[in-house]
Amino acid sequence: MIENMPSPDPRKPSAALDEARLRQQAIGVRLRQMFDDVVNEDVPDEFLDILRRADEKKAEQGS
C-alpha cells in the first residue's frame, strides 16, 4: 500500500531530482509560452463586433 504512493523514492540520487526539476522547468517555460502565444495573437474583429451588438441590444431593450 505505502510503496504505491507516488512520493519520490528517498533513495533516489539527488542528481536525478535535480534533473527532474530542470525538466519540469523546461516544460513550464514551454507551457507559459504556448499560452502567451495565443494571448499575444491579434483578437479577431468578430469578438468586438459581437460585444458591440450585445451592447446595442441592451441599449434598445432599455429597462
Binding site: 504556448m34 499560452f35 502567451d36 495565443v38 494571448v39 499575444n40 495573437e41 483578437v43 479577431p44 468578430e46 469578438f47 459581437i50 460585444l51 450585445a54 451592447d55
Partner: peptide
Amino acid sequence: IPHLRAFARTLCGDATAADDLAQDAMVKAW
C-alpha cells in the same frame, strides 16, 4: 479577450471551436 481565447484554446484544442467558446463566454459574461 486574449486570455479567454488562450484558455479556450487549451480546453478545445481546435482554434475555431475555441474562439466560438471564448465568444460565448464573453457574451455570457457581458
